[in-house]
Design a protein around this nucleic acid. Structure first.
Length: 484
DNA sequence: TTTTGAGTTGTTCGA
DNA sequence: GTCGAACAACTCAAA
């Protein structure tokens, strides 16, 4: 067997892969070098927003890094923290330690890719896969062009040969040399309302709870995943986002569950959940091949929709005060926990885009600021899908009715009452449309619309017609190749 | 090249 | 209350 040249020291540059198990960048570094130095560079210019009170995404990352440091220390290593511009800090560390390579997980966000490409011109940056199970370049149609529709993408994805086995976490790690490490974001902690503790261990506990045992939730996922009043989703997204579990590990868990599934319903549950992982990879692929989706509609014909710059409506939406309970419950859950189930995301997003006619990019940005699982590819894909402007978009006449959606996916009003205590005593019949209560009933329920809970800020039926007209107009006007 | 089938997640209307 | 059709036409992907 050929021995590759073994260098003394390599850096393991951690960005969004905060795990030791199934980490291809770490494995490659360990394979190549005797000493591997784990390093995280906090580049405040590149990491979304500055620390602010109640800013949950950065707090989740900060606590996740502390957790990773503890996991590294348990194996004899530790995390080196640096703050500043990445290239400068990495260059310093290379000089200080004599390291000959920097290993990192390949990114797909356009800005990050450009940054990496530039950095690689002067520094020995080596990239490994692992963000997705199949890299964007691997899933292409005949002729090499990328897929712009999910279903054929999924068929092609599933037809690919299985990727390598999940890599075990190293039991021991080399002791890094003594170099300066300044604690960063030390003051940031997650607010009490966030029901997610970061870390690899927690991620695996959640995957097990979801997929193992005699009758795990994944078996009923296809049937119940849209129910807002039940907690039947895996809630793994924050962990996938920060690489506290790899997509390959998650898929392996689902596959193991499929092997013990004894009926069709169970198998459908596993399939439906795997399909969500494939959606994640699809949106990664879309962002990789069409980086402009971050700036404008994928569909050129819908780049001129007459959005309303409605700051007042946007604020009401952000604060959960639109007067539509299921929308408001979702927005308050988001503000409180930094997370939302997918159904709630769609309902809230549809309301902003279709009922308020507000540019989907406003909502996209708000979600990125609020979500601890905020991922540029998935978030953009989801918003463009709801807005009907994306790759595989819903027909534009598909407008969610917030009352119908509420009644269907939260039949007893449990979800809306959890987040909107002012609706606690509103009868089930009216809990998704409290303005329809007779006046005396509002008094009796302690929920007078306009006093205790907002009146609807738009009439949905009118708003729906307005949206259909605006989209129809944009669609016709977009016919003549009149770009921006 | 041409043709054909298909396309996550919905709502409303009228029988 | 339930059910099926209509809602537009277009683009993608593959044969």
């Amino acid at each position: 067997m050929l021995e590759t040249h073994k260098m003394d020291t390599a850096l393991w540059w951690i960005r969004r892969d905060l795990r030791l198990g199934d980490n291809q960048a770490l494995a490659a570094a360990l394979d190549q070098a005797g000493t591997v130095i784990p390093v995280f560079v906090y580049d405040s210019k590149r990491l979304m927003a500055p620390p602010a009170p109640g800013y949950k995404p950065l707090a989740f990352l900060a606590e996740g890094l502390r957790r990773l440091d503890a996991d590294l220390r348990a194996r004899g290593s530790r995390l080196i923290f640096r703050a500043g511009e990445s290239a400068t800090q990495l260059a310093c560390l290379l000089a200080e330690t004599g390291a000959g390579a920097i290993w990192a997980e390949e990114e797909i966000a356009p800005a990050q890719r450009e940054h990496d490409a530039k950095l690689a011109e002067t520094l020995p940056l080596c990239l490994a896969g692992g963000l997705t199970i199949h890299p964007p370049d691997a899933v292409r149609r005949a002729g090499g062009r990328p897929y712009a529709v999910y279903s054929p993408y999924r068929r092609a994805w599933q037809a690919l040969p299985a990727t390598g086995l999940v890599l075990a976490a190293p039991a021991r790690l080399p002791v890094p040399p003594t170099v300066a490490s300044r604690p960063i974001l030390d003051e940031l902690t997650l607010p009490a309302g966030v029901p997610f503790r970061p870390g690899e261990t927690e991620a695996h506990h959640r995957l097990q709870a979801f997929s193992e045992g005699s009758s795990p939730a994944i078996f009923r996922y296809a049937e119940l995943r849209d129910r807002l009043d039940l907690d039947v989703t895996s809630q793994l997204s924050p962990y996938l986002r920060h690489g506290m579990i790899s997509a390959r590990q998650a898929a392996a868990g689902a596959s193991a569950a499929a092997e013990v599934a004894s009926d069709d319903e169970a198998r459908q549950g596993v399939d439906a959940w795997l399909a969500e992982l494939i959606w994640r990879e699809f949106f990664v692929s879309v962002l990789y091949h069409w980086p402009d989706v971050t700036k404008q509609s994928f569909n050129p014909r819908l780049r001129q929709v007459s959005w309303h710059a409605d700051q007042e409506g946007f604020d009401a939406w952000c604060r959960g005060r639109t007067g539509y309970p299921v929308v408001d419950a979702a927005m308050r859950q988001l503000a409180h926990t930094g997370w939302l189930p997918n159904r709630a995301r769609m309902i809230a997003a549809s309301f902003l885009v279709k009922d308020l006619m507000i540019d989907w990019r406003w909502g996209e940005r708000w979600f990125m600021e609020q979500l601890i699982d905020g991922d540029q590819a998935a978030n953009n894909g989801g918003w463009q899908w709801v807005a009907g402007t994306g790759t595989d978009a819903a027909p534009y006449f598909r407008v969610f009715n917030p009352v119908t959606q509420g009644r269907r996916h939260d039949p007893a009003g449990t979800y809306v009452r959890r987040w909107l205590p002012e609706l606690a005593r509103v009868p089930d019949t009216y809990v998704h449309a409290p303005w329809q209560m007779p006046a005396e009933m509002q008094q009796a329920a302690g929920c007078v619309v306009g006093r205790d809970y907002p009146a609807p800020i738009v009439d949905h039926a009118l708003a729906r017609d307005r949206a259909l007209a605006a989209y129809s107009h944009a669609w016709q006007a977009g016919n003549g190749r009149s770009g921006p």
